[in-house]
């Protein structure tokens, strides 16, 4: 069970549900569960089987480069954040 924060631009898909508890072993599993609840959400987060370019996955404040394959510890907080490059 992890707490998933829905990106602001997808609040319209979730009826303004901003975060919810979702069951799943990996980030990919969590997205599959979200898709069951909110059809269409997967395509907004995943592209060609990979996390959409320009998105990063933060779990408990840390970027997880394993992305969809990352195994989510119980009770962790999962965020999808626009990825950024430094200068």
């Amino acid at each position: 069970m992890a707490i998933v924060h829905i990106p602001a631009l997808l609040h319209s898909l979730t009826g303004d549900v901003r975060k919810l508890e979702v069951e799943g072993r990996t980030v990919g599993d969590l997205i599959d569960q979200l898709e069951l609840l909110y059809p269409g959400i997967r395509d907004r987060l995943v592209e060609n089987g990979h996390l959409r370019s320009g998105l990063a996955i933060f779990v408990d404040g840390m970027v997880r480069r394993e992305a969809l394959e990352y195994e989510v510890p119980p009770k962790s907080e999962v965020l999808f954040v626009p990825a950024v490059a430094g200068g």
């Binding site: 990979h50 998105l55 990063a56 970027v63």
Partner: peptide
């Protein structure tokens, strides 16, 4: 491949 930025 731009690493954390994904594929562009």
């Amino acid at each position: 491949n731009l690493g954390e930025l994904g594929e562009v």
